[in-house]
């Protein structure tokens, strides 16, 4: 193949995915705020509120503090948004296979997931504010805490697929086309449900939402990592937050809820694409509702020490239990 035939779809796909990620990200942030408001018996902001907020932030002055490191301070929001979009490029959206699926797999995604968080840490340290520094340190601790259960959940699924004799078990295309629920017996399905719950609880920490938002904590850290950011830079972080929400939900959908309507009901290719895309949005909505809105409305913020013990001891232990069930399932077969 000539470079033009491989490069052109990749570039076009990247532009399309960026537009989709940013628009859908803001939309889902708005839906999340509406859900939260209704659960608190409020009317809540209109669903397009995040768009209005972003427009306003883009029109405001962007202040760079005197004791900040300007290039890093301005670069961190761009890096956060760009790396969040990059994650989406490796994820299947509906029945559309990932744009860069041939170049990266689940392991790469696990590394990429840390990049937006690292960008926020870099931006926090570059702000030259004690609040942002404390926030950056907390973000790093949170990252180390949730990485372990997240890795267990994802590796266990891929390992089970490889035990079922499926080639390239870490490839997202393989995971999306072979739902792992199908290859497992009852024990494995219990293990899978446990891992699904763990992923649902890792999502709020990954997105720094309540109860795992001790790095942003308005009440104690005055905005933490983002304390010195304003105007355009804050808007970029806000967009990155939306794209990360979509990316995290898309990972949960791709690994745990990979079904498409078009595999069950016969329809024309164009219609299948549209229906699967809408079904994908519905699945993302379900994930956002459970692991962002529901958890953040029903809980108060954890302390940073509690975050570590929750993830390492409780979710880590639960993850090993789920992994054990899947191992037993793979060893003894269906019974």
């Amino acid at each position: 193949m000539s470079p033009a035939t491989t490069l052109l779809p990749a570039v076009a796909g990247t532009i399309a995915i960026s537009a989709f990620g940013i628009l859908a990200g803001l939309l889902f942030l708005g839906i999340d705020r509406k859900f939260a408001a209704h659960m608190q018996a409020r009317i809540g902001p209109p669903i397009r509120q995040p768009f209005i907020d972003t427009m306003k932030l883009l029109r405001k002055e962007s202040v760079v503090p005197d004791n900040a490191i300007p290039w890093l301070f301005n670069f961190a929001p761009i890096l956060a948004l760009a790396s969040s979009i990059t994650i989406l490029l490796y994820l299947p959206i509906g029945s559309l296979m990932p744009v860069l699926g041939a170049y990266g797999d689940l392991v790469l995604i696990m590394y990429l997931l840390t990049v937006p968080a690292l960008a926020m840490v870099a931006g926090g340290f570059a702000s030259g504010s004690p609040y942002a520094t404390v926030g950056a340190q907390r973000e790093m601790v949170t990252m180390m805490a949730y990485e372990f259960p997240l890795a267990i959940a994802i590796i266990a699924i891929a390992w089970r697929l490889s035990m079922a004799g499926i080639a390239y078990p870490f490839s997202l295309a393989t995971i999306a086309t072979n739902p792992f629920w199908g290859v497992m017996g009852p024990l494995g399905i219990i293990g899978g449900i446990i891992l699904l719950l763990i992923l649902a609880w890792v999502t709020p920490a990954e997105l720094s939402r309540v109860p795992f938002d001790s790095q942003e904590a308005e009440t104690e850290l005055a905005g933490g990592l983002l304390v010195e950011y304003s105007g355009r830079n804050l808007a970029l972080f806000y967009l990155a937050q939306g794209v990360r929400t979509i990316a995290m939900a898309a990972i949960a959908v791709a690994v745990f809820l990979p079904w498409n309507i078009s595999t069950f009901v016969a329809m024309s290719p164009a219609l299948a694409l549209a229906v699967d895309f809408l079904f994908f949005l519905a699945k993302v909505l379900l994930v956002v509702f459970v692991s962002v809105s529901l958890i953040r409305v029903s809980m108060a913020r954890f302390k940073i020490t509690q975050i570590v013990s929750v993830y390492w001891i409780w979710f880590g232990g639960l993850g090993i239990l789920g992994l054990l069930l899947i191992v037993l399932d793979a060893t003894f077969g269906v019974w």
Binding site: A41, I43, L221, V227
Partner: peptide, 21 residues
Amino acid sequence: TPRYDPERFGIKLVGSPKHAD
């Protein structure tokens, strides 16, 4: 509070003056 719910109009309290209007 939810009784007055100013978030309907996009009004919210932020923790940092850098974010404020």
